[in-house]
């Protein structure tokens, strides 16, 4: 987006000053700046990470969109590119990294794995979509999404940023955005917010087993 696009319609700018001056709203200029300097976090999880690297490499080169600086540190990144399969062993780290990112922050789920589990969803140690734990802004399905599909995902993200307003964005609200509690690795992955549910489930399971055992005993007795 050049300066011309920033200009609000309805204002005549003298032709001598075209390209140098734009009359616009604060929101627009704020979003315009952010839109064109989204720094992604260098964060590869699986196969999709390679398509992400390819998008950064010479042929697709996402630095054309002001994204060239892939930051290894979450503190300096605006965009978390979850590129690949999210496993139960990895999700605590992902949540921790997300918490460490400073606002404004965005999450792009790349690939069907990050979106909703992917081909390995049925497995026992795969999280069914990273949005089970952290909020996702843009989903790019595909296995793997080609670099151009990912670039399209960035375009979609930029559109989202474009439509935000300083008045409503969460990072300028009074109330603090709560941190996401980091999941714990127990016998299986445990979300600290759901302990009561898990306990109830396990208790019910135990009960069921007891009933079954009792039932089979009875049957045995009858026979």
């Amino acid at each position: 987006m050049g300066v011309e696009d920033l200009n609000l319609p309805g204002y005549e700018i003298p032709s001598a000053m075209k390209g140098n001056i734009a009359i616009t709203t604060l929101d627009r200029i704020y979003n315009w700046c952010r839109q064109n300097s989204v720094w992604p976090m260098m964060f590869g999880l699986a196969c999709c990470a390679f398509e992400m690297i390819c998008s950064a490499a010479s042929r697709f080169d996402f630095s054309r969109f002001g994204m060239e600086v892939m930051r290894p540190s979450p503190r300096q990144a605006d965009l978390m590119l979850v590129s690949g399969t999210v496993t139960k062993k990895m999700i605590p780290q992902i949540v921790r990294l997300y918490n460490q990112m400073s606002e404004p922050k965005y999450v792009l789920a790349m690939g069907s794995c990050a979106c909703g589990g992917g081909p390995f969803k049925e497995g026992y140690s795969v999280v069914s979509g990273v949005d089970k734990f952290i909020p996702v802004d843009v989903y790019v399905p595909g296995c793997p999404p080609t670099p151009q599909a990912l670039l399209h995902g960035f375009a979609v993200l930029r559109k989202k940023i474009e439509n935000e307003s300083i008045r409503t964005v969460r990072w300028y609200r009074k109330e603090a955005v709560p941190e996401i509690p980091i999941p714990v690795l127990g016998p299986d992955l445990m979300d600290p917010r759901r302990y009561a549910e898990i306990k109830a489930y396990a208790a019910e399971k135990a009960q069921q087993r007891e009933q079954e055992a009792a039932g089979s005993l009875n049957e045995g007795g009858q026979a």
Partner: peptide, 22 residues
């Protein structure tokens, strides 16, 4: 797949497990 699971997620726990004690 998660819709069919009682916990709505890809998790399972042994009988009588109490996460608070973990």
């Amino acid at each position: 797949a998660e819709d069919k699971h009682p916990l709505k997620d890809n998790i399972d726990f042994p009988e009588g497990f109490d996460p608070a004690k973990w």
